[in-house]
Design a protein around this nucleic acid. Structure first.
Lengths: 100, 100
DNA sequence: AAAAGTGCTTTGAATTTCAAAGTAAATGTG
DNA sequence: CACATTTACTTTGAAATTCAAAGCACTTTT
């Protein structure tokens, strides 16, 4: 019996990216600092994972000004939501089917 | 609100190791070749992940002879079972709590 | 105006991943 | 029996990934 680990999406294997997507699934958007605090990450670490997700087309980066300061907010794209749900399905199946 | 991604066990982040553990949770032991086929992996890839799990003390490697050929079988250690369950709990919590 | 803080981005060293090549013993073939 | 091939892994190293420190362009405080 085969266990389909290859259905898991590599983009979501990393804990940070799992966390980011998880948050963006239920929050329409989230800014850099809040995300950083929620996930307890260093700046550089968050930035690189966010960029990785953007490159995959799974999240959208929006840069605007809040008063005089820059504000970067992120939101999951439609593609990202779909891919993440498929990943979770694969994960669930993997953990469920393992004994059949 | 904090999302505890750091409770996820790094040893189980990788899809291959997730698959191996998942299989060893419900099978007392599994041999190299069956595992390799179940997970659709190359030899080297399986070998390195198995070694990684052994280094963490999460699985036990047993080498014996089946007739004249060597047979390597793997089983999850008690520590491994515990760690894996804790990882799954953390995962579940992460995916569930993300909106509260 | 100098110093300190904010909000990110860049960099690069360390770690991880993975498949190709290697090894050693068993087995098949002429 | 000589040999090529297969089996059951292990070793190797190039490529990809991860992550925090340092960098940068501002803004705010003193």
């Amino acid at each position: 019996m085969k266990i389909h680990i290859h259905n898991l999406n590599k983009a979501f294997e990393n804990r940070v990216r799992l966390g980011i997507m998880s948050i963006l699934m239920v929050n329409d958007s989230m800014d850099f600092n809040t995300l950083k605090e929620m996930l307890e990450l260093t700046d550089g670490n968050l930035a690189s994972h966010v960029t990785a997700l953007e490159k995959e087309g799974y999240l959208h980066i929006k840069k605007e000004f809040a008063g005089k300061k820059t504000l970067t907010t992120y939101s999951a794209t439609k593609t990202g939501v779909k891919a993440f749900n498929e990943h979770l399905d694969a994960l669930e199946k993997l953990l469920k089917d393992r004994n059949t």
